[in-house]
Design a binder for these strands. Structure first.
Lengths: 212, 212
DNA sequence: CTGTAATATTTTGTATGCAGAATTCATAGT
DNA sequence: ACTATGAATTCTGCATACAAAATATTACAG
């Protein structure tokens, strides 16, 4: 039996992010610490620690005397986050080892193609897309950068369930992933970065209409 | 009388960052929660909340059962943070209103020139440099981005007192700031961004030798 | 004298308690 | 009926208490 030996605040944070993905929390709703703690079977102390972490990542907001609430969503903020992630992933790609990139390019291409074949659940699509990007930038040796990307993307997860279920043209996304992989295969790092930026801009536009 | 009506955790965080700037904490030293809380005149609860925030910003590390400690410094990590901030400030400049940039360009130029004139304390130099960059990117409407820049720069503050006191060629920094301001005055946003990136690369190199 | 096991002490991680701020609800006055 | 006022309640923010893990100390065998 593998007993969990990590701070409760981390486990709580993970669980809350999972519930956020499932769409359990509407944007803007306040959190009742006592009831949520009871529901999770923990005390308020580690819960609050998790909430403070999430507030630092922009998932939650806190107001003096008024506790925490899920940060409201807006097209403006979504645009902002996308621009940031695009720049950060571009940086990750710029500073990655070209040899490594060429090595993983075939895998990236295959994943992108598999992706376009299977019509999957929205939840799976999101996860698949995330994993693809993780693999893409995973060769970057800048650890702080990879951590930062993860952290900023956490703030973006508030939007993922909003755009779910619709007729998201994921073929387009897969197509764009193929383009990136092709550039990498060709050893064209510059082109891959441009294609990646393009992927983020388009992805943003695709989602945008579904946000209030 | 203006009574402080903001969470203790924020005030504590601020105080700790101030002490960090003063060089009170050596990199790698563990924090004793009880004694630090007593010293600050608060309980462990809001102190821990501040520590968790700082850990999220990369200023501290936490290990299960072992508490918090100031994250060790390294040239590698310093390079990493500089690359990130350079990319983020470049993004901020890219997405700023050109009209606004031209409007503040004269002020930026004047500040940079004043800077090179006065031989100030190292502490002042740091502060001045920060304020200059804040003004530069302050016109960016991407609020998330500005917050993120502040947050990432917090992690960089662990290094500022390390490089202090030496014969830092700040004339060079002031010169580079002038270049950036001149590009903005000329309405050459692209050139300003390049000059800004150059400023970060050089600034990094200047500091690098003084880090273990 | 050195290495190790047992014990004592310190310190963290989590739970609980408490005061005050914010909100809700009820009541009175217009 | 509607608003204003005040009491009652809820909830947060901070302090304290407790249990378990980690560290330091001691005792002892080799």
């Amino acid at each position: 039996m593998a007993i969990e030996r990590r701070p409760l605040r981390e486990q709580i944070r993970e669980e809350l992010m999972l519930r956020l993905d499932r769409g359990d929390f509407a944007a803007g709703t306040d959190i009742n610490e006592a009831s949520l703690a009871a529901e999770l079977g923990v005390s308020r102390t580690p819960l609050r620690e998790a909430l403070i972490t999430l507030a630092g990542e922009g998932v939650l907001e806190s107001n003096q005397g008024r506790g925490f609430r899920f940060a409201p969503v807006s097209r403006k903020e979504f645009r902002e986050i996308c621009a940031i992630v695009a720049a950060l992933e571009a940086l990750a790609l710029e500073t990655s080892d070209p040899v490594y990139l060429e090595k993983i390019a075939p895998r990236l291409l295959r994943l992108a193609q598999d992706f376009s074949d299977n019509i999957a659940e929205q939840q799976d699509i999101e996860r698949h897309d995330d994993e693809w990007h993780d693999l893409l930038v995973g060769g970057c040796l800048n650890e702080r950068l990879l951590d930062l990307i993860t952290s900023v993307k956490a703030g973006m997860r508030r939007y993922s369930h909003l755009v779910a279920g619709g007729s998201t043209p994921m073929e387009r996304a897969a197509e764009e992933h193929c383009r990136i992989a092709e550039r990498l295969l060709a050893g064209d790092q510059k082109g891959a970065i441009a294609a990646l930026r393009n992927n983020w801009v388009n992805g943003m536009e695709r989602m945008m209409s579904r946000i209030p």
